[in-house]
Amino acid sequence: MFTSPGPELFQLGPFVLRWYGLLIAVAVLIGLNLSSWLARERGLDANLISDLLPILVLAAVIGARTYYVAFEWSSYQRSWWDVFAIWKGGIAIHGALLGGSLAVILFCRWRRVPFWDVLDVLVPSVVLGQAIGRWGNFFNSEAFGVPTDLPWKLFIPEGNRPGVFKTSEYFHPTFLYESLWNIGIFVLLMVLFRLGRERKISLPSGALSCVYLLSYSLGRIWIEGLRIDPLCLGGQPPFCDGGLRIAQLMSLSLMAIAGFGLFWLYGRKSPLPDPGLKQADPS
């Protein structure tokens, strides 16, 4: 059984250190070092990652918040200032991926470097960061699944339970499911990267990114089906009755894109079009 000790690690006067913030900081630090090393292994300038990181983090946060607010706009009608109150919660990983991808495209066009090579050295850090960051949901007692009596059940305080489940105490720890799934993806990506570096398998530019999108989206589809706080299109939580779960729709779309990308690379044996290179640049 899992029980959160609370969202705060410690408080010193007005300063409060929250577990979520600490985990995100750790994930960013690990990601910087890991992607810098992978960049060197791929033959890129490792300084590219440190130059990109502040832009990438800012774009990901803005994208994650904008995405969430767009689908929860009705909740902000009374006080639109709350749109900027990100410390109150309300971000979405798919928005972070969209915002981050746009930032990488613009950065690559500015620095004239291949987009897919840069993205390939970023995605292992991204998925590892997702695995670490999901534990923030545990400390905040949020983003959990439907009630369960399984041995690894998660206790949720009454104040964090939705009204329809006020009498239930234990829920699926979907944060744990996704964290473990993401760790598995991280291991897969690192193994593929090493095999490609040693030329034991064919791993053209963009293949690693497609594998990430395909595998992450596959796991997110089934995990999202357990959650009771989904963003809904045409329905209401906890089950989006009469509507659809946005994360599942986005995951299906990303799976289709990733599958097409892999077909393009291995079926047609052609390199992926590079959105980071201007038309006038040699390719």
Rank of each mutant, 00 (worst) to 15 (best):
A258N: 13
S202F: 10
L17S: 10
A27Q: 05
F115H: 07
W73M: 12
E198F: 06
I183L: 15
L265T: 10
Y67V: 07
D229H: 06
P7R: 13
F175N: 08
P282F: 12
P273Q: 14
V191I: 14
D82N: 15
I156Y: 05
R109C: 09
F10E: 10
A59W: 01
C108I: 05
G89I: 06
G95L: 05
V57N: 00
R199V: 02
L176F: 13
L17R: 07
L97K: 04
G235Q: 11
V113E: 05
L218E: 04
I228C: 01
L226M: 14
P237Y: 04
R42S: 06
W135I: 06
R161G: 12
I24G: 02
Y67F: 15
L150T: 12
D241A: 14
Q248W: 02
L106A: 11
A70W: 14
G225E: 05
M1C: 08
I55Q: 09
L23P: 02
Q130T: 06
R112T: 14
V118K: 08
A46E: 13
V57D: 01
V123E: 03
G163C: 10
A207E: 03
L277Q: 15
L38V: 01
M255Q: 07
L32Q: 03
I223F: 00
S202W: 10
S141E: 14
I91N: 09
N160V: 02
Q248I: 12
L218A: 15
G145Q: 01
V123W: 03
N137R: 04
G163S: 14
W116C: 01
W81S: 13
S215R: 08
L249C: 11
L214F: 15
R197H: 13
F263T: 12
G159A: 13
M1T: 12
P282A: 11
F138D: 06
F175E: 05
P238K: 00
I201E: 04
Q77D: 12
P204V: 07
M250Q: 08
G259R: 10
I30E: 02
W80A: 13
I86D: 06
D82I: 00
P237L: 04
S205D: 10
V26R: 01
G21W: 02
S217C: 12
P282C: 11
V164D: 09
S36P: 00
S270T: 15
S35K: 02
C210G: 07
Q77C: 09
A25I: 04
D149E: 15
Q11F: 04
G133L: 03
G95R: 11
L44I: 03
A46N: 01
K269N: 15
